[in-house]
Design a protein around this nucleic acid. Structure first.
Length: 924
RNA sequence: GCUCGAAUGGUGUAAUGGUAGCCACGAGGGACUUAAAAUCCCUUGGUCAUUGCGACCGUGCGGGUUCGAGUCCCGCUUCGAGCACCA
């Protein structure tokens, strides 16, 4: 029997399917383990070799845990709502559901070929009504709750109404859009619309007028994590700021818990750091500056309360509500003109343009500590979204304020001893304070940190402001002007939004004739006929964003067919949370924040038992493309090999990856690739045409996409699996490079040759030798440790060593080889299963085997070779029994004849023996 | 600018503070073969030596701790990632 991957792999994949080998049920007899992959968006391009990297890693871990006796939940599904399917629908008129289903079918067939142990009974799709029913349900719950900042959890909105009925907003501790001051009488006197508007200020899912990232080309708003450098992440279109009335989720209410929760999870430091940056907690002080000659206060936030004596002016963001209030009639024309010019700039232009612009409002503020009047300016370097859009400017110690002060010729007062502010500001928070003694507060001589604390205390005592924590994390904008997304379970009665009753869910996505926005600019759902409740009330036209469906999918896998709840108490109580989550870092500030928020909300409601959804998280690196190049001599049809190209004036041309093998161009195929290359001629080196290469993103246009199907077809799934792991550390990004795949394929053939020679099965019942056992147990020990550390590349190396050694030892012992197969099974399940049955003769599947334990006794050396060093330089070796005690080794080393030479005329200072390793003699 | 990583042969990489370069790829040489493929064996960090043994230098740079540093500490350089007019 020869190793035939096609036959073996298709046969076993079929059998696993028939036997439902990997289907999982709750089993209280066994400990549970939940391994999850980030489910893919099924794009039209299909899977490329980068996708399976994480899937293979999680598959290995799942199979390993299963062999260790865990009840492993390892599901897969599809994040099926998304922009590409909709864009395609707009262009072709094809229903996005059709496109999506086609893509899913393709993904599934590709995944199946790699031999994953998913429980496909639990498959979910976010666009499936039985699934999005629970996305809609969660939204209704969020609408019906507010965040109690004292209890630090979500509470029913009824409790808030109770409070308003009794005391108005007095003493209300709730996360809100803006601080309201309403008495119980005022509240009770409100009509339904006013009450609704008031409650919106507190609901966790609320309608709000917010600045949104509007993308005209996509015709929709985007969340902050969907925008990068002022461009949309998908498509790269410009994004502008626009005030819109939108559904939002009050994620900001959970900022502190999202931050604290990071302490409890086992994620990489860099990912936690990314989330901490995104949440952006800053401790500071909120202070009020009186506007001279008016009873208006400017409220500002600062983390540098210590610099208050250096405030020489104030600056307002152009969008700030204060601008209109402080602008004097004389300055009105100038201010209006400035606002107009700012308005025409996009967010991106504002960011790129570093030139300081601004205008004086005509008013002055009073520095509460010095009593001095300071001018108030408007400038677009202040962000509207930060606090109230007003800052106190300390040019000496803030580079932006410094630039503005220089541009407008405003005074700069240094506050820190030794700081030279003649050329630039001194931003560091260190040093001793100067110029900071006022009538009441004296800071001179204090350290910056102490000065901050002293000032905070002072302003709090004097009622000038209060200590406050600010977060960068913003509420999530939850409306999209799109068709292909979850419909909101919302209808409007006299302009007031209401939630549908549970028995009306799921609210199904309606059919529409066209997927573009309507002529009147309404979202596509505006085209749906009868898009209203049975009573005739209009339904919401927006749909939910992509992250809605992915925020709780891991809970649904626990109980995917439940029609009564997102997840039953029983299933959630058993599976609890994801023990191991594998996916890319690109979701660090999106999905991984939203789903933590979503989970915490459900936790507050008592619907889930764990506060954090993902206990351990591993980020697999990205697989980049490796683009190959050929070099055409300018003006000819002659191509010169990479090593010789510097002798010519050449044009670099990307060449399709399929035409290149180990950097060698297949010149015949190349000629057929494009008509213009038909008569190409080549200048070869060593008889070959060697291509150059560059590492780029894997994409169709770069001709560097490698499809896993092709690898499976040629080498088999087991080779693909082993090779992807062999490529390097899991968490590292690396280019896809098939240059080493033959080595892995050779390994499998060598493994096969341990069991078969031609048609003869070599396996026998011979007693394993001590050497055999040492080789085997070295492997078991190494692989067990490696899997726990996700160090799969070194495991593959260990397999290669083991098989090479067993071949040299001519080992065919059933006892040894069967254990080798069990250890290999997570990595290369097909070939392991095949040999397990055909050569070892087992009748049960290898999945029912037990992970072997290594025996330390087999690993012990009978003799140990100690290199003996003098002053760190190795001089000779001594060989002693492994059991020889260290003092004895020391004695033998010093008595060795070579030692005598080195010790002549020298004094031994000390002798160090590292057991089993080294003897170091220190001489003087 | 702030934060977090990383840097080792021609390449991907490996090394609980203990003989740096495991395992592969590539390259070179050899065996088998009419020939090729496949397979197997040997060599492969650098320099020098090479009819023996070997010798010296080597983990981005400069210091330090240590009997001993790729690994730990301090200071740089370069690259990558995240955040960023967030006051």
């Amino acid at each position: 029997m020869e190793y035939n991957h096609k036959d073996i792999e298709s046969r076993w994949q079929q059998q696993w399917k028939n036997d439902k080998t990997y289907s999982t049920e709750i089993d209280r007899e066994r400990p549970k383990f939940y391994v999850l992959d980030m489910f893919p968006y099924p794009s039209g391009a299909g899977l490329h070799v980068g996708h399976p990297l994480g899937y293979i890693a999680s598959d290995i871990y799942s199979r390993y845990k299963r062999l260790q006796g865990f009840n492993v939940l390892h599901p897969m599904g599809y994040d099926a709502y998304g922009l590409p399917a909709e864009q395609y629908a707009i262009q072709t008129g094809q229903h996005p559901e059709k496109t999506t289903n086609d893509n899913i079918a393709r993904y599934r067939s590709q995944l199946d070929k790699i031999g994953f142990c998913y429980d496909w009974n639990r498959e979910i799709r976010t666009c499936d009504p039985s699934y999005y029913k629970w996305t809609q349900w969660a939204f209704i719950q969020m609408f019906n709750h507010y965040y109690d900042t004292e209890a630090a959890k979500a509470m029913p909105i009824a409790k808030l109404i109770e409070h308003l009925d009794a005391k108005g907003t007095a003493g209300l501790k709730a996360a809100c859009g803006k601080e309201l001051d309403i008495t119980a009488e005022q509240w009770k006197a409100m009509d339904e619309k006013q009450k609704s508007d008031t409650l919106m200020n507190y609901r966790i899912a609320y309608l709000g007028n917010t600045m949104v990232n509007w993308c005209p080309q996509l015709g929709t708003v985007l969340a902050n994590d969907e925008v990068s450098d002022g461009l949309s992440v998908r498509g790269g279109y410009p994004v502008e700021q626009k005030l819109m009335y939108q559904w939002c989720l009050r994620v900001s209410a959970y900022a502190q818990r999202l931050l604290e929760g990071l302490e409890k999870v086992d994620w990489t430091d860099s990912l936690k750091e990314t989330q901490r940056n995104w949440i952006g907690r800053s401790e500071g002080a909120e202070m009020r500056f009186k506007v001279a000659g008016s009873d208006l206060d400017l409220e500002i936030f600062t983390t540098r309360a210590d610099t208050i004596f250096g405030v020489t002016f104030m600056v307002l963001a152009p969008e700030s509500a204060y601008v209109a209030q402080v602008t004097t009639p004389e300055q009105k024309a100038a201010v209006d003109e400035y606002l107009a010019t700012v308005k025409h700039k996009t967010e991106r232009e504002r960011m790129i343009d570093k030139k300081m612009t601004g205008v004086f409002t005509g008013s002055y503020a009073v520095n509460p500590l010095t009593g001095k009047n300071i001018p108030i300016y408007v400038s677009d370097y202040v962000l509207a979204g930060y606090g109230k859009g007003a800052i106190m400017a300390v040019p000496a110690h803030d580079s932006r304020d410094y630039a503005f002060a220089r541009a407008f010729n405003l005074p700069v007062i240094p506050l820190i001893e030794g700081a030279d502010v003649s050329e630039e500001s001194f931003d560091a928070k260190e040093g001793k304070m100067i110029n900071s003694d006022g009538p009441e507060l004296k800071l001179n001589g204090l350290d910056v940190k102490d000065a901050i604390a002293t000032t905070k205390k002072f302003i709090e005592e004097k009622g000038l402001g209060r200590v406050k924590v600010n977060y960068r994390l913003r509420d999530a904008i939850f409306s999209r002007q799109r068709y292909w997304g979850e419909p909101f379970p919302v209808y409007y009665k006299d302009g007031v939004p209401h939630m549908l009753d549970m028995d009306k869910l799921p609210l199904m996505l309606p059919e529409i004739s066209e997927y573009r926005p309507t002529e009147t600019g309404e979202p596509p759902l505006g085209r749906a006929e009868n898009w209203c409740t049975a009573e005739g009330y209009p339904l919401e036209l927006n749909t939910m964003p992509g992250f809605a469906g992915s925020s709780a999918y891991y809970l649904r896998y626990m109980d995917p067919h439940n029609d009564e709840a997102l997840v039953s108490e029983e299933a959630n109580g058993y599976w609890r949370q994801v023990d191991l989550y594998i996916g890319g870092t690109e979701h660090a500030t999106g999905h991984l924040i939203y789903s933590r928020f979503w989970n915490k909300f459900l936790y507050d409601l008592g619907k889930v038992v764990e506060d954090e959804p993902f206990k351990k998280l591993i980020n697999q690196g990205m697989i980049q493309g490796r683009t190959s190049f050929v070099y055409r001599v300018q003006g000819t049809n002659t191509f010169v090999s990479h090593g010789l190209k510097d002798n010519y004036d050449v044009q670099t041309i990307r060449v399709h990856i399929d035409l290149v093998n180990n950097d060698v161009l297949n010149t015949e195929e190349f000629k057929k690739w494009r008509p213009e290359f038909e008569n190409a001629e080549f200048i070869l080196e060593d008889g070959k045409y060697i291509c150059g290469y560059a590492v780029e993103k894997m994409s169709k246009s770069m001709f560097n996409v490698v499809n896993p199907d092709d690898i499976v077809e040629r080498y088999g799934a087991d080779t693909l699996r082993l090779y992807e792991m062999f490529l390097g550390p899991l968490e590292q990004s690396k280019p896809w490079d098939t240059n080493g795949i033959d080595g892995v394929n050779r390994f499998i053939k060598k493994l096969w040759n341990l069991f078969y020679k031609g048609d003869t099965c070599l396996v026998d019942d011979s007693e394993p030798s001590a050497q055999n056992l040492k080789t085997l147990h070295t492997l078991i020990k190494k692989v067990t440790a490696d899997i726990e550390n996700f160090s799969y590349n070194t495991s593959v190396a260990a397999f290669m060593i083991c098989v090479n050694e067993l071949a040299k030892q001519n080992c065919h012992s059933r006892a040894v080889l069967s254990q080798l197969l069990v250890v290999l099974a997570p990595f290369a399940p097909h070939v392991a299963e095949e040999l397990w049955h055909s050569a070892i003769g087992n009748t049960t599947t290898i999945c029912d085997a037990k992970w072997p334990e290594w025996n330390e006794d087999y690993l012990k050396e009978s003799t140990v070779n100690y290199p003996v060093s003098f002053n760190g330089k190795p001089r000779f070796n001594i060989t002693v029994e492994a059991s020889t005690p260290a003092p004895e080794v020391q004695k033998l080393a010093l008595e060795h004849e070579s030692a005598a030479k080195w010790l002549e005329g020298k004094t031994v200072v000390k002798v160090i023996v590292v057991p089993g390793k080294i003897v170091n003699v220190v001489v003087k």
